[in-house]
């Protein structure tokens, strides 16, 4: 029980850390003066102390949406595969629920973008709608392929099964799923090459465009939602594709888990440094790749049994 709550708390608390970590590594690789890994927390506290500036044109949605962006993601945290096989609570949720909750969050984020009558918000929402519409099928396909391989549709139980019995015979499907999922991780979290979280240029913005008109506490909520979303995806990735170390004692397992997430963050940073932001209409090529791999994974498992 305590371990479980501890795990959730660690995930929430370390979430901003990993985003800052990515930024730090990128700056370091670009020979800039790297910022502190704690920058995320600093931003957060700064936002808390600021007043909330609300657009005149905005409606009740602006007041509701930030909560509804964050809340489903927090709920997802509870349902994620645990770091340790002997966890107190092994969630019963399957891919569809998880994707659904993530989509619920982005649904409200998109509404938020449209609420303030600014054309930036519209840009962001429209693009986000486009991207997430393509992400959703790929994500469901991938997770289902994995769940089938792991012989359990419940995500958490599936990862534990994987840890105990890695399906060598389905390695091909597994690899396809891995590639697909990593693309999704990048796309959903708005990283280069799908989105560039660091610029405020209307040609490139997706996520930032939607939250341009909120500030203070609400911005803090949305920003932490972004951090938690990264955490969710990273943790799903590591649970599925690096299913080891789960039988260790809890604290060790947690540490291994955090290291794995840090590894993912480094991977993302490396990719960000080495690629350019794609044009919006080239993004479907990348997502299409994800869908194809997801499909391949499901089909090669399903039909060929490989």
């Amino acid at each position: 029980m305590i371990a479980y709550i501890l795990w959730i708390a660690v995930m929430v608390l370390t979430a901003p850390l990993f985003l800052s970590l990515i930024k730090m590594i990128k700056m370091w690789l670009l020979f800039k003066k790297p910022l502190s890994p704690l920058q995320g927390y600093r931003d957060f506290s700064k936002l808390l102390s600021k007043e909330v500036l609300i657009s005149q044109e905005a409606s009740a949605i602006t007041h509701i949406a930030p909560y509804m962006v964050l809340a489903p993601l927090v709920v997802v945290l509870f349902l994620l595969p645990p770091p340790s096989a002997k966890s107190f609570f092994i969630s019963f949720t399957d891919a569809f629920t998880l994707t659904g909750l993530v989509a619920l969050s982005s649904f409200f984020l998109m509404l938020l973008g449209l609420d303030s009558a600014s054309s930036f918000g519209g840009i962001g929402s429209s693009r986000e709608a486009f991207i997430s519409a393509l992400v959703e099928p790929a994500m469901i396909l991938v997770i289902f392929a994995l769940s089938l391989m792991a012989k359990n549709l419940g995500v958490a139980q599936a990862t534990i099964n994987l840890a105990h019995h890695f399906p060598i015979e389905h390695l091909a499907s597994f690899a396809f799923a891995g590639i697909a999922f990593f693309i999704l991780l990048i796309a959903e979290n708005g990283r280069i090459p799908v989105d560039n979280p660091e610029t405020h240029l209307e040609l490139t913005m997706v996520h930032e465009a939607m939250i341009l008109d909120i500030s203070g506490w609400y911005l803090a909520l949305v920003e932490s939602a972004a951090a938690i979303k990264f955490m969710i995806f990273a943790s799903l990735f590591v649970s599925f594709f690096m299913p080891f170390g789960m039988d260790a004692p809890f604290l060790v397992a947690l540490l291994i888990f955090l290291l794995k997430v840090a590894f993912v963050a480094i991977l993302v940073a490396l990719i960000e440094v080495n690629t350019a932001k794609l044009r919006l209409f080239k993004v479907p090529n990348l997502l299409g790749l994800a869908i194809i791999f997801a499909f391949l994974s499901l089909i090669s498992y399903y039909i060929l049994g490989a």
Partner: peptide, 8 residues
């Protein structure tokens, strides 16, 4: 949290 209204 304090809030204030201004145009977009």
């Amino acid at each position: 949290v304090r809030s204030r209204s201004h145009r977009t």
